[in-house]
Amino acid sequence: METISAASQLFQFIVTGLTVGAIYAMVAIGFNIIYNVTEIINLAQGEFVMLGGLIMVFMHVTVGLPMILAFVTAVLLVTLTGMLLDRLAIKPIRQPSVMTLIIATIAASIVIKGTAMLIWGKSPYDLPAFSGRTPIELGGVIIQPQYLWVIGFLVVVTIGLTLFFNRTILGKAMAACADNPDAARLVGINVQYMVLLSFALSAAIGAIAGMTLTPIALMDYDRGAMLAIKGFGAAILGGLGSFSGAVLGGLLIGLIESLGAGFLLSGYKDAYALIVLLLVLFLRPSGIMGNFEVTKFKRF
């Protein structure tokens, strides 16, 4: 085996970092969608990722549906879970303060995790890679085909959401709720419906993240919390509420982790990401792409 050159090592770190970062970015986007409409940090976001992965495994491996069909059913089921979360845990709260709602999402995440444990048990599950496991070699850099799927889905999700929020009435209505819920209500937007929609959307994106991640890292019932923390970090780094910020934040955290592990001590790779996060927050409290003027109007 020939040794690896420093340049290809660097590119390898970047490729890995971008892939892991893309997952964080998708989780961060999920946080942002709900945050924008409701000002809630949905701490069950990681659970959507876990559910997406495990339901896809169930549909594809256990039930035997073809990949695409399994993908669609899994997205739909997780979306449904997201909508149920809103209807069962968020909407019924009588005098909602942001804090009680956030606590409700914590409760929901525990329920979802526990249910997943009862259904799937505690062992990790594998999913066949979407287009085989033969790695692609590019000038000494090894790329798993699944990496491309992960990054590809991030691109699709980002473009899709940009179009949705800028070009459709529904998307603009949601954005209006995000800007000012009272004014949105005055112009006839059904805010509760928009909240439901935001949960559905972010559940679907979480599910996609989970399904693309599973062939790389397996999936077990316990994975959600860690992904939620990383995704939340990405959302904060990029600026809570900003989609481009979420993508940037996610990719940055992934890159820092990977480069940190590669060039510095790998034991501290989470610390490197956190140090950068803290530095950014010192210099720009609203995050890289966040707007400080806007955050002043938010309750949380």
Partner: peptide
């Protein structure tokens, strides 16, 4: 080299 119990990928450590 080290990695986290919930890490998704150890390519960086292995590349090193």
């Amino acid at each position: 080299e080290k990695y986290d119990p919930k890490d998704a990928d150890m390519t960086a450590q292995l590349t090193k």
